[in-house]
């Protein structure tokens, strides 16, 4: 019971992270919900092993990113999918369509990256240092640096093209 409570606390604390990753790796609301559940399930499965090892955030990023990248795309169900019209899901009194538009544009840029670049870009946007990115991804810090500068160039080109 204590284990469940601890798990629930951690998930609640980091639900934004799972939301951001699942939004980045999917194209519609149904797929996003499925992936969200996959991630929570995988986190629960690995909860025991995490407690003895690394930091919560490192464990969480690693499992969530691994789950996202190893999922097979569901075949497109024509006319049956709900497009991701909003990134911030709940329409509160603070809802700003302009902010949503900017977010959609940001996600559109990230979604054009390949699967490895997407993960690195996500961790960079999360404000992670190269050493931490290296710990999560298994790439060497210098390799992380090289790849990130390449991603930045790629994004710049994408932006200029528009």
């Amino acid at each position: 019971m204590q284990k469940e409570e601890e798990f629930i606390r951690i998930i609640k604390e980091h639900e934004g992270v799972i939301f951001k990753i699942t939004t980045m790796y999917t194209d519609n609301r149904d797929d996003q919900k499925d992936l969200y559940q996959d991630v929570v399930y995988q986190l629960w499965k690995s909860f025991e092993s995490f407690r003895a090892e690394s930091k919560i955030s490192t464990w969480m990023y690693r499992i969530a990113l691994n789950t996202a990248l190893t999922r097979l795309k569901k075949s497109k169900r024509m006319g049956n999918t709900v497009p991701m019209d909003k990134v911030i899901m709940q329409q509160t009194e603070n809802y700003e369509p302009e902010f949503e538009e900017k977010l959609k544009l940001l996600y559109a840029h990230i979604k054009q990256l390949d699967v490895l670049e997407k993960g690195l870009m996500f961790l960079l946007l999360e404000g992670k240092k190269y050493e931490e990115i290296s710990e999560i991804t298994g790439l060497s810090p210098s390799n992380v640096g090289t790849k990130i500068s390449r991603i930045k160039q790629k994004l710049k080109k994408q932006i200029i093209k528009e």
Binding site: Q37, Y41, I88, M89, Q90
Partner: peptide, 25 residues
């Protein structure tokens, strides 16, 4: 923009204990 989005997501927590434990099944 990402950091602003993260802040806003922080304010709109919506998972309940039940939803979380259902997802683990």
């Amino acid at each position: 923009l990402w950091s602003e989005m993260s802040d806003r997501l922080e304010q709109q927590k919506k998972l309940t204990n039940e939803i979380i434990m259902n997802m683990t099944q």
